[in-house]
């Protein structure tokens, strides 16, 4: 199968994730969409790795996974503590960091 199709899939997933980040209010859903974008990138990296015949892309995909895992830990902790103090998981309600 033509590896380009994997790239199309990755682009589709990335777009879905991006749209989700922009239009959803629930922090958990936004977070999942971010994960979706990261994984779309992973898919693209692995595909490029295959297309170019070397392992660079796969190595970077591993890095991305590690970063994503760390991000999940920190991000979920923030979301939970925000939810505890404000009783809401909506990203629009947490707009205190402005002048």
């Amino acid at each position: 199968m033509n590896p380009v199709n994997y790239l199309y899939l990755a682009a589709l997933l990335f777009t879905i994730g991006a749209v989700g980040v922009l239009i959803r209010r629930n922090a958990i859903v936004v977070f999942m969409c971010v994960e979706l974008m990261l994984n779309a990138c992973n898919l693209a990296f692995v595909t490029f790795s295959r297309m170019h015949g070397n392992l660079d892309g796969q190595i970077i995909a591993f890095f991305t996974m590690v970063v994503a895992a760390a991000e999940v830990v920190v991000g979920l902790a923030i979301i939970v503590s925000v939810f505890r103090s404000r009783h809401s998981a909506s990203v629009d309600d947490a707009s205190l960091m402005k002048l």
Partner: peptide, 8 residues
Amino acid sequence: KLQNGHVR
């Protein structure tokens, strides 16, 4: 004013 605090 651009810094409105809305993440989105």
